[in-house]
Design a protein around this nucleic acid. Structure first.
Lengths: 197, 197
DNA sequence: TACATACCCTTACACTGTAAGTGTCAATGG
DNA sequence: CCATTGACACTTACAGTGTAAGGGTATGTA
Protein backbone atom coordinates (compact mmCIF):
# COMPACT_ATOMS: atom_id res chain seq x y z
CA UNK A 1 0.00 0.00 0.00
CA UNK A 2 2.83 2.33 0.86
CA UNK A 3 4.47 1.56 -2.46
CA UNK A 4 1.30 2.28 -4.41
CA UNK A 5 0.41 5.42 -2.48
CA UNK A 6 3.85 6.88 -2.96
CA UNK A 7 4.79 5.77 -6.46
CA UNK A 8 1.55 4.86 -8.21
CA UNK A 9 -0.03 1.60 -9.19
CA UNK A 10 2.37 0.76 -12.01
CA UNK A 11 5.25 0.87 -9.53
CA UNK A 12 3.78 -2.18 -7.85
CA UNK A 13 5.50 -5.15 -9.44
CA UNK A 14 6.27 -8.41 -7.72
CA UNK A 15 9.99 -7.74 -7.94
CA UNK A 16 9.71 -4.23 -6.56
CA UNK A 17 7.44 -5.31 -3.76
CA UNK A 18 9.84 -8.11 -2.95
CA UNK A 19 12.74 -5.69 -2.87
CA UNK A 20 10.79 -3.41 -0.54
CA UNK A 21 10.30 -6.36 1.81
CA UNK A 22 13.89 -7.55 1.48
CA UNK A 23 12.86 -10.69 -0.35
CA UNK A 24 12.87 -12.14 -3.85
CA UNK A 25 9.80 -11.76 -6.02
CA UNK A 26 8.97 -15.45 -6.09
CA UNK A 27 8.93 -15.68 -2.33
CA UNK A 28 5.77 -13.61 -2.32
CA UNK A 29 3.95 -16.51 -3.91
CA UNK A 30 4.19 -18.38 -0.63
CA UNK A 31 1.74 -15.83 0.75
CA UNK A 32 -0.41 -14.82 -2.21
CA UNK A 33 -1.64 -16.99 -5.10
CA UNK A 34 -1.03 -14.31 -7.74
CA UNK A 35 -0.88 -10.61 -8.38
CA UNK A 36 -4.60 -10.25 -8.97
CA UNK A 37 -5.19 -11.41 -5.41
CA UNK A 38 -2.68 -8.83 -4.22
CA UNK A 39 -4.62 -6.05 -5.92
CA UNK A 40 -7.87 -7.37 -4.57
CA UNK A 41 -6.38 -7.35 -1.08
CA UNK A 42 -5.43 -3.71 -1.55
CA UNK A 43 -8.99 -2.83 -2.50
CA UNK A 44 -10.31 -4.81 0.40
CA UNK A 45 -8.00 -2.99 2.76
CA UNK A 46 -9.33 0.40 1.71
CA UNK A 47 -12.97 -0.67 1.80
CA UNK A 48 -12.40 -2.15 5.24
CA UNK A 49 -11.66 1.33 6.55
CA UNK A 50 -15.01 2.73 5.46
CA UNK A 51 -16.99 2.91 8.70
CA UNK A 52 -20.64 2.14 9.13
CA UNK A 53 -22.54 5.34 9.88
CA UNK A 54 -24.06 6.00 13.27
CA UNK A 55 -27.47 4.35 13.11
CA UNK A 56 -28.88 6.94 15.49
CA UNK A 57 -28.58 9.61 12.81
CA UNK A 58 -31.49 10.43 10.50
CA UNK A 59 -31.49 8.12 7.48
CA UNK A 60 -30.45 10.82 5.01
CA UNK A 61 -27.58 11.84 7.23
CA UNK A 62 -26.49 8.21 7.38
CA UNK A 63 -26.41 8.07 3.59
CA UNK A 64 -24.39 11.26 3.46
CA UNK A 65 -21.91 9.90 5.97
CA UNK A 66 -21.38 6.69 4.06
CA UNK A 67 -20.75 8.55 0.81
CA UNK A 68 -18.41 10.98 2.54
CA UNK A 69 -16.44 8.19 4.17
CA UNK A 70 -16.08 6.34 0.91
CA UNK A 71 -14.80 9.44 -0.83
CA UNK A 72 -12.50 10.45 2.02
CA UNK A 73 -10.77 7.09 2.04
CA UNK A 74 -10.61 6.96 -1.73
CA UNK A 75 -8.88 10.31 -1.83
CA UNK A 76 -6.44 9.04 0.78
CA UNK A 77 -5.37 6.33 -1.68
CA UNK A 78 -5.99 7.93 -5.06
CA UNK A 79 -3.96 5.43 -7.05
CA UNK A 80 -6.18 2.58 -5.94
CA UNK A 81 -9.45 4.27 -6.86
CA UNK A 82 -9.55 2.81 -10.39
CA UNK A 83 -9.22 -0.66 -8.89
CA UNK A 84 -11.99 0.03 -6.40
CA UNK A 85 -14.29 1.37 -9.08
CA UNK A 86 -13.73 -1.55 -11.41
CA UNK A 87 -14.38 -4.38 -8.98
CA UNK A 88 -17.79 -5.37 -7.69
CA UNK A 89 -18.21 -4.85 -3.94
CA UNK A 90 -17.96 -8.55 -3.28
CA UNK A 91 -14.90 -8.79 -1.10
CA UNK A 92 -15.11 -10.15 2.41
CA UNK A 93 -14.82 -6.79 4.08
CA UNK A 94 -17.18 -4.90 1.82
CA UNK A 95 -19.90 -7.33 2.78
CA UNK A 96 -20.76 -5.71 6.08
CA UNK A 97 -21.12 -2.33 4.40
CA UNK A 98 -23.38 -3.76 1.72
CA UNK A 99 -25.49 -5.47 4.37
CA UNK A 100 -25.79 -2.22 6.28
CA UNK A 101 -26.61 -0.22 3.16
CA UNK A 102 -29.35 -2.63 2.13
CA UNK A 103 -30.79 -2.46 5.61
CA UNK A 104 -30.84 1.30 5.36
CA UNK A 105 -32.49 1.49 1.93
CA UNK A 106 -35.02 -1.19 2.85
CA UNK A 107 -35.97 0.76 5.98
CA UNK A 108 -37.13 3.66 3.82
CA UNK A 109 -40.32 1.85 2.90
CA UNK A 110 -39.28 1.18 -0.67
CA UNK A 111 -39.78 -2.25 -2.16
CA UNK A 112 -36.71 -4.44 -2.68
CA UNK A 113 -36.28 -3.55 -6.31
CA UNK A 114 -36.33 0.17 -5.60
CA UNK A 115 -34.03 -0.24 -2.62
CA UNK A 116 -31.51 -1.90 -4.90
CA UNK A 117 -31.85 0.89 -7.45
CA UNK A 118 -31.19 3.50 -4.79
CA UNK A 119 -28.11 1.71 -3.54
CA UNK A 120 -26.66 1.32 -6.99
CA UNK A 121 -27.44 4.87 -8.01
CA UNK A 122 -25.65 6.25 -4.99
CA UNK A 123 -22.75 3.83 -5.29
CA UNK A 124 -22.48 4.67 -8.99
CA UNK A 125 -22.38 8.37 -8.31
CA UNK A 126 -19.88 8.07 -5.46
CA UNK A 127 -17.46 5.85 -7.37
CA UNK A 128 -17.89 7.70 -10.65
CA UNK A 129 -17.37 11.11 -9.13
CA UNK A 130 -14.40 10.05 -7.06
CA UNK A 131 -12.83 8.29 -10.01
CA UNK A 132 -13.12 11.42 -12.12
CA UNK A 133 -11.79 13.52 -9.26
CA UNK A 134 -8.70 11.40 -8.72
CA UNK A 135 -8.11 11.05 -12.46
CA UNK A 136 -8.31 14.77 -13.03
CA UNK A 137 -11.44 16.53 -14.15
CA UNK A 138 -11.77 17.92 -17.61
CA UNK A 139 -9.81 21.14 -18.11
CA UNK A 140 -8.13 20.94 -14.74
CA UNK A 141 -4.97 19.88 -16.47
CA UNK A 142 -4.10 16.96 -14.24
CA UNK A 143 -4.72 14.36 -16.89
CA UNK A 144 -2.01 13.02 -19.19
CA UNK A 145 -1.26 15.11 -22.26
CA UNK A 146 -1.27 13.31 -25.59
CA UNK A 147 -2.00 14.07 -29.22
CA UNK A 148 -5.70 13.71 -28.61
CA UNK A 149 -5.74 15.89 -25.53
CA UNK A 150 -7.11 19.39 -25.50
CA UNK A 151 -5.55 22.13 -23.47
CA UNK A 152 -7.71 24.92 -22.13
CA UNK A 153 -5.34 27.37 -23.80
CA UNK A 154 -6.45 26.00 -27.19
CA UNK A 155 -10.02 27.07 -26.63
CA UNK A 156 -9.63 30.73 -27.41
CA UNK A 157 -11.60 30.42 -30.63
CA UNK A 158 -15.29 31.28 -30.43
CA UNK A 159 -16.38 27.70 -31.03
CA UNK A 160 -16.96 26.90 -27.40
CA UNK A 161 -18.63 29.88 -25.73
CA UNK A 162 -20.25 27.90 -22.93
CA UNK A 163 -17.07 26.06 -22.14
CA UNK A 164 -15.15 29.32 -22.01
CA UNK A 165 -17.72 30.71 -19.62
CA UNK A 166 -17.21 27.70 -17.35
CA UNK A 167 -13.41 27.69 -17.20
CA UNK A 168 -13.19 30.02 -14.19
CA UNK A 169 -15.53 27.96 -12.05
CA UNK A 170 -13.87 24.75 -13.22
CA UNK A 171 -10.57 26.05 -11.92
CA UNK A 172 -11.93 27.44 -8.66
CA UNK A 173 -14.44 24.68 -7.90
CA UNK A 174 -14.58 23.27 -4.41
CA UNK A 175 -14.89 19.53 -4.77
CA UNK A 176 -16.14 18.88 -1.27
CA UNK A 177 -19.04 21.20 -1.84
CA UNK A 178 -19.64 19.74 -5.29
CA UNK A 179 -19.81 16.21 -3.96
CA UNK A 180 -22.34 17.30 -1.35
CA UNK A 181 -24.36 18.98 -4.08
CA UNK A 182 -24.50 15.70 -5.96
CA UNK A 183 -25.72 13.86 -2.89
CA UNK A 184 -28.28 16.62 -2.38
CA UNK A 185 -29.75 15.98 -5.81
CA UNK A 186 -30.06 12.29 -5.03
CA UNK A 187 -31.60 12.72 -1.64
CA UNK A 188 -34.11 15.27 -2.83
CA UNK A 189 -35.15 12.97 -5.64
CA UNK A 190 -35.29 10.07 -3.25
CA UNK A 191 -37.52 11.88 -0.79
CA UNK A 192 -39.98 12.48 -3.57
CA UNK A 193 -40.07 8.80 -4.51
CA UNK A 194 -40.46 7.58 -0.95
CA UNK A 195 -43.86 6.51 0.34
CA UNK A 196 -45.17 8.73 3.14
CA UNK A 197 -44.57 7.28 6.60
CA UNK B 1 -11.32 -1.77 -31.62
CA UNK B 2 -12.35 -5.10 -33.07
CA UNK B 3 -9.49 -6.78 -31.23
CA UNK B 4 -10.47 -5.21 -27.91
CA UNK B 5 -14.20 -5.84 -28.33
CA UNK B 6 -13.65 -9.50 -29.14
CA UNK B 7 -10.76 -10.46 -26.89
CA UNK B 8 -10.60 -7.85 -24.14
CA UNK B 9 -8.29 -4.99 -23.42
CA UNK B 10 -5.32 -7.09 -22.37
CA UNK B 11 -5.34 -8.77 -25.77
CA UNK B 12 -4.38 -5.43 -27.30
CA UNK B 13 -0.59 -5.45 -27.53
CA UNK B 14 1.46 -3.74 -30.18
CA UNK B 15 2.58 -7.09 -31.57
CA UNK B 16 -0.91 -8.53 -31.71
CA UNK B 17 -2.34 -5.43 -33.28
CA UNK B 18 0.48 -5.50 -35.81
CA UNK B 19 -0.21 -9.13 -36.61
CA UNK B 20 -3.89 -8.32 -37.08
CA UNK B 21 -2.92 -5.66 -39.60
CA UNK B 22 -0.34 -7.84 -41.31
CA UNK B 23 2.52 -5.72 -40.09
CA UNK B 24 5.32 -5.77 -37.52
CA UNK B 25 4.73 -4.16 -34.15
CA UNK B 26 7.27 -1.40 -34.66
CA UNK B 27 5.67 -0.30 -37.90
CA UNK B 28 2.74 0.98 -35.88
CA UNK B 29 5.00 3.65 -34.44
CA UNK B 30 5.02 5.36 -37.81
CA UNK B 31 1.40 6.19 -37.18
CA UNK B 32 1.07 6.53 -33.42
CA UNK B 33 3.56 7.99 -30.93
CA UNK B 34 2.98 5.31 -28.29
CA UNK B 35 0.46 2.90 -26.86
CA UNK B 36 -1.11 5.44 -24.54
CA UNK B 37 -2.12 7.46 -27.57
CA UNK B 38 -3.62 4.34 -29.08
CA UNK B 39 -5.81 3.81 -26.03
CA UNK B 40 -6.80 7.44 -26.00
CA UNK B 41 -7.81 7.15 -29.63
CA UNK B 42 -10.02 4.20 -28.75
CA UNK B 43 -11.75 6.20 -26.04
CA UNK B 44 -12.14 9.12 -28.39
CA UNK B 45 -13.67 6.86 -31.01
CA UNK B 46 -16.38 5.67 -28.64
CA UNK B 47 -17.14 9.15 -27.30
CA UNK B 48 -17.34 10.41 -30.85
CA UNK B 49 -20.33 8.16 -31.43
CA UNK B 50 -22.33 9.69 -28.57
CA UNK B 51 -24.81 11.93 -30.37
CA UNK B 52 -25.97 15.33 -29.24
CA UNK B 53 -29.59 15.16 -28.16
CA UNK B 54 -32.34 16.81 -30.17
CA UNK B 55 -32.42 20.36 -28.88
CA UNK B 56 -36.13 20.58 -29.57
CA UNK B 57 -36.83 18.11 -26.76
CA UNK B 58 -37.64 19.33 -23.25
CA UNK B 59 -34.44 19.89 -21.27
CA UNK B 60 -34.94 16.92 -18.97
CA UNK B 61 -35.55 14.66 -21.92
CA UNK B 62 -32.32 15.93 -23.48
CA UNK B 63 -30.43 14.99 -20.33
CA UNK B 64 -31.99 11.56 -20.35
CA UNK B 65 -31.07 11.04 -23.97
CA UNK B 66 -27.44 12.00 -23.42
CA UNK B 67 -27.10 9.62 -20.49
CA UNK B 68 -28.81 6.84 -22.40
CA UNK B 69 -26.58 7.32 -25.43
CA UNK B 70 -23.47 7.28 -23.29
CA UNK B 71 -24.52 4.07 -21.63
CA UNK B 72 -25.66 2.42 -24.85
CA UNK B 73 -22.31 3.01 -26.53
CA UNK B 74 -20.41 2.01 -23.43
CA UNK B 75 -22.25 -1.30 -23.30
CA UNK B 76 -21.43 -1.78 -26.98
CA UNK B 77 -17.72 -1.69 -26.08
CA UNK B 78 -17.64 -2.98 -22.52
CA UNK B 79 -13.91 -3.62 -22.42
CA UNK B 80 -13.18 0.03 -23.06
CA UNK B 81 -15.42 1.36 -20.33
CA UNK B 82 -12.68 1.40 -17.67
CA UNK B 83 -10.55 3.51 -19.97
CA UNK B 84 -13.42 5.90 -20.62
CA UNK B 85 -14.19 6.23 -16.94
CA UNK B 86 -10.60 6.89 -15.96
CA UNK B 87 -9.79 9.63 -18.43
CA UNK B 88 -11.08 13.17 -18.21
CA UNK B 89 -13.39 14.18 -21.07
CA UNK B 90 -10.72 16.30 -22.66
CA UNK B 91 -10.27 14.63 -26.00
CA UNK B 92 -10.95 16.45 -29.22
CA UNK B 93 -14.21 14.70 -29.93
CA UNK B 94 -15.61 14.84 -26.43
CA UNK B 95 -15.32 18.60 -26.58
CA UNK B 96 -18.48 19.19 -28.57
CA UNK B 97 -20.48 17.07 -26.13
CA UNK B 98 -19.09 18.98 -23.16
CA UNK B 99 -19.87 22.27 -24.85
CA UNK B 100 -23.42 21.12 -25.52
CA UNK B 101 -23.87 19.82 -21.98
CA UNK B 102 -22.69 23.06 -20.44
CA UNK B 103 -25.04 24.98 -22.70
CA UNK B 104 -27.86 22.79 -21.49
CA UNK B 105 -27.13 23.10 -17.79
CA UNK B 106 -26.55 26.83 -18.05
CA UNK B 107 -29.90 27.26 -19.78
CA UNK B 108 -31.65 25.95 -16.68
CA UNK B 109 -31.14 29.25 -14.89
CA UNK B 110 -28.52 27.89 -12.51
CA UNK B 111 -25.38 29.86 -11.90
CA UNK B 112 -22.15 28.60 -13.42
CA UNK B 113 -20.97 26.85 -10.30
CA UNK B 114 -24.22 24.93 -9.94
CA UNK B 115 -24.30 24.14 -13.64
CA UNK B 116 -20.89 22.55 -13.28
CA UNK B 117 -22.02 20.57 -10.25
CA UNK B 118 -25.00 19.22 -12.14
CA UNK B 119 -22.89 18.19 -15.10
CA UNK B 120 -20.37 16.40 -12.95
CA UNK B 121 -22.97 14.70 -10.81
CA UNK B 122 -24.70 13.29 -13.86
CA UNK B 123 -21.46 12.35 -15.56
CA UNK B 124 -20.27 10.73 -12.36
CA UNK B 125 -23.42 8.68 -12.03
CA UNK B 126 -23.46 7.64 -15.68
CA UNK B 127 -19.81 6.56 -15.74
CA UNK B 128 -19.91 4.98 -12.31
CA UNK B 129 -23.05 3.01 -12.95
CA UNK B 130 -21.92 1.83 -16.38
CA UNK B 131 -18.52 0.88 -15.04
CA UNK B 132 -20.11 -1.23 -12.33
CA UNK B 133 -22.50 -2.74 -14.84
CA UNK B 134 -19.79 -3.80 -17.29
CA UNK B 135 -17.54 -5.00 -14.48
CA UNK B 136 -20.26 -7.12 -12.96
CA UNK B 137 -22.45 -5.98 -10.11
CA UNK B 138 -22.06 -7.40 -6.66
CA UNK B 139 -23.48 -10.92 -6.33
CA UNK B 140 -24.18 -11.25 -10.03
CA UNK B 141 -21.19 -13.50 -10.28
CA UNK B 142 -19.60 -11.97 -13.34
CA UNK B 143 -16.60 -10.63 -11.49
CA UNK B 144 -13.33 -12.52 -11.15
CA UNK B 145 -13.23 -15.08 -8.37
CA UNK B 146 -10.29 -14.91 -5.97
CA UNK B 147 -9.50 -15.71 -2.38
CA UNK B 148 -11.08 -12.48 -1.26
CA UNK B 149 -14.21 -12.90 -3.29
CA UNK B 150 -17.54 -13.87 -1.78
CA UNK B 151 -19.95 -16.15 -3.50
CA UNK B 152 -23.66 -15.75 -2.89
CA UNK B 153 -23.76 -19.43 -1.97
CA UNK B 154 -21.57 -18.63 1.05
CA UNK B 155 -24.21 -16.33 2.52
CA UNK B 156 -26.50 -18.97 3.90
CA UNK B 157 -25.64 -18.07 7.47
CA UNK B 158 -27.93 -15.64 9.22
CA UNK B 159 -25.36 -12.86 9.38
CA UNK B 160 -26.66 -11.02 6.36
CA UNK B 161 -30.45 -11.03 6.46
CA UNK B 162 -30.92 -7.90 4.35
CA UNK B 163 -28.51 -9.12 1.73
CA UNK B 164 -30.30 -12.47 1.55
CA UNK B 165 -33.57 -10.65 1.08
CA UNK B 166 -32.07 -8.75 -1.84
CA UNK B 167 -30.53 -11.65 -3.74
CA UNK B 168 -33.65 -12.42 -5.81
CA UNK B 169 -34.02 -8.86 -7.06
CA UNK B 170 -30.29 -8.61 -7.64
CA UNK B 171 -30.49 -11.58 -9.97
CA UNK B 172 -33.66 -10.50 -11.74
CA UNK B 173 -32.93 -6.77 -11.91
CA UNK B 174 -33.52 -4.96 -15.19
CA UNK B 175 -30.56 -2.65 -15.68
CA UNK B 176 -32.23 -0.42 -18.25
CA UNK B 177 -34.99 0.35 -15.81
CA UNK B 178 -32.51 0.78 -12.98
CA UNK B 179 -30.45 3.29 -14.91
CA UNK B 180 -33.57 5.28 -15.68
CA UNK B 181 -34.48 5.21 -12.00
CA UNK B 182 -31.10 6.73 -11.17
CA UNK B 183 -31.61 9.51 -13.67
CA UNK B 184 -35.07 10.03 -12.22
CA UNK B 185 -33.63 10.68 -8.79
CA UNK B 186 -31.24 13.23 -10.23
CA UNK B 187 -33.79 15.04 -12.31
CA UNK B 188 -36.30 15.23 -9.48
CA UNK B 189 -33.66 16.64 -7.20
CA UNK B 190 -32.55 19.03 -9.89
CA UNK B 191 -36.07 20.34 -10.49
CA UNK B 192 -36.28 21.19 -6.83
CA UNK B 193 -33.04 23.17 -6.93
CA UNK B 194 -33.90 25.08 -10.07
CA UNK B 195 -35.12 28.65 -9.89
CA UNK B 196 -38.71 29.08 -11.11
CA UNK B 197 -38.93 30.34 -14.67
C1' DT C 1 14.46 -40.57 13.84
C1' DA C 2 11.20 -39.52 10.12
C1' DC C 3 8.40 -36.67 8.04
C1' DA C 4 5.77 -32.47 7.04
C1' DT C 5 5.33 -27.69 6.69
C1' DA C 6 6.81 -23.06 5.97
C1' DC C 7 9.58 -20.16 3.83
C1' DC C 8 13.20 -18.71 1.02
C1' DC C 9 16.01 -19.12 -3.15
C1' DT C 10 17.55 -19.45 -8.45
C1' DT C 11 16.60 -20.26 -13.10
C1' DA C 12 13.84 -19.97 -17.06
C1' DC C 13 10.01 -18.75 -20.29
C1' DA C 14 6.99 -16.13 -22.87
C1' DC C 15 5.54 -11.74 -23.16
C1' DT C 16 5.45 -6.53 -22.85
C1' DG C 17 6.56 -1.42 -24.79
C1' DT C 18 9.75 0.87 -27.39
C1' DA C 19 14.65 2.94 -28.61
C1' DA C 20 17.81 2.66 -32.49
C1' DG C 21 19.06 1.83 -36.88
C1' DT C 22 18.32 0.20 -41.85
C1' DG C 23 15.93 -0.60 -46.28
C1' DT C 24 12.72 0.64 -49.97
C1' DC C 25 9.42 2.53 -52.39
C1' DA C 26 6.69 6.97 -54.43
C1' DA C 27 6.39 11.72 -54.96
C1' DT C 28 8.43 16.14 -55.57
C1' DG C 29 11.63 19.97 -57.02
C1' DG C 30 15.55 21.75 -59.66
C1' DC D 1 16.11 13.05 -65.63
C1' DC D 2 18.03 12.75 -61.44
C1' DA D 3 18.46 13.91 -56.49
C1' DT D 4 16.32 14.43 -52.47
C1' DT D 5 12.83 13.76 -49.29
C1' DG D 6 9.27 11.60 -46.67
C1' DA D 7 6.35 7.77 -45.66
C1' DC D 8 6.39 3.42 -44.29
C1' DA D 9 8.11 -1.04 -43.37
C1' DC D 10 11.73 -3.93 -41.42
C1' DT D 11 15.22 -6.16 -37.79
C1' DT D 12 17.55 -6.22 -33.59
C1' DA D 13 17.96 -5.36 -28.85
C1' DC D 14 16.91 -4.03 -23.98
C1' DA D 15 14.86 -3.74 -19.69
C1' DG D 16 10.98 -5.04 -17.52
C1' DT D 17 6.70 -8.03 -16.51
C1' DG D 18 4.04 -12.32 -14.13
C1' DT D 19 4.84 -16.76 -12.84
C1' DA D 20 5.86 -22.05 -13.61
C1' DA D 21 9.29 -25.39 -11.95
C1' DG D 22 12.28 -27.08 -8.85
C1' DG D 23 15.65 -27.00 -4.96
C1' DG D 24 17.46 -25.62 -0.36
C1' DT D 25 16.99 -25.30 4.80
C1' DA D 26 15.09 -24.51 9.30
C1' DT D 27 11.33 -25.48 12.32
C1' DG D 28 7.67 -28.26 14.49
C1' DT D 29 5.25 -32.72 15.03
C1' DA D 30 4.60 -38.15 15.31
Amino acid sequence: MKLVDEQGIEALSMRRLGAELGVEAMSLYNHIPNKAALLEALVDHVIAEVPIADEALPWDEQIREMARSFRRLSLAHPHIVPLIAMRPFNTVTALKNVEYAFGLTLSLGLNENEALHVFRALAGFATGYTLAETGGFFAEGTGPKTDYTIDTADLTSGEYPNLMKMIPVILSCNHDEEFEFGIDLFLEGLKKKMPPR
